[in-house]
């Protein structure tokens, strides 16, 4: 439906450094600088998660901003809406902390703010051209691209592989 960019994850590239988590928290702080964000109260929180699985796999997981977002449909207080850049966002002011969004989210990426007792999630950094986590990732495991663009790149890569194999 849209040509908005999404945050895609390349699981094979994640080294589990958690730099994305730091960058996300700093971006969602008052001062937007690491050395001062660390002293803020309440402490800013990260909206991106990196899960570890046996075999030493590291997998960044974050809100997919689903086109048919279960959370958006389930929210009873009308706190969840779709922004003009197609992100699914939670309005903390309207959130009543019922955690229905948490129940229905297929990815488990909606968090509970410890101090505010409100739900929070990735907002794709509306003030930035590239989301902070993507900009911070040292291995490009996070990619900010349109669905079409991401697929196109993937097709190009697989095509090159195919040719190499045929030539071999």
């Amino acid at each position: 439906m849209s040509n908005y960019k999404e945050i895609f994850v390349k699981t094979d590239k994640c080294t589990g450094c958690l730099t994305c988590k730091i960058a996300c928290a700093v971006e969602h702080s008052e001062t937007k600088s690491l050395f001062s964000a660390i002293r803020e109260s309440p402490r800013p929180v990260s909206r991106v998660y990196v899960e570890w699985l046996p075999g030493n796999a590291k997998v960044p997981v974050l809100c997919r901003h689903c086109e048919e977002a279960p959370c958006l449909n389930a929210c009873i207080s009308g706190a969840i809406s779709r922004s003009d850049t197609n992100a699914v966002i939670t309005d903390a002011g309207k959130c009543i902390g019922c955690w229905t969004c948490v129940m229905v989210c297929p990815y488990g990426v909606i968090g509970r703010d410890q101090t505010l007792a409100k739900a929070f999630r990735c907002d794709r950094c509306p003030d930035r051209e590239i989301p902070a986590c993507v900009g911070a990732c040292p291995t490009q495991a996070l990619v900010y691209e349109t669905v079409d663009g991401f697929s196109k790149t993937k097709r190009k890569t697989v095509s090159r592989e195919l040719l190499t194999r045929e030539g071999a």
Binding site: C17, K21, I22, R43, G135, P138
Partner: peptide, 28 residues
Amino acid sequence: LPQCGFGETGLCCRHCLQGPCRINPFDP
């Protein structure tokens, strides 16, 4: 760039083989 925030803040330790450990200052 970007450099690792754990290293920048001194919250990364490689002094033993159970590590590396890092304490996320934004993770209670």
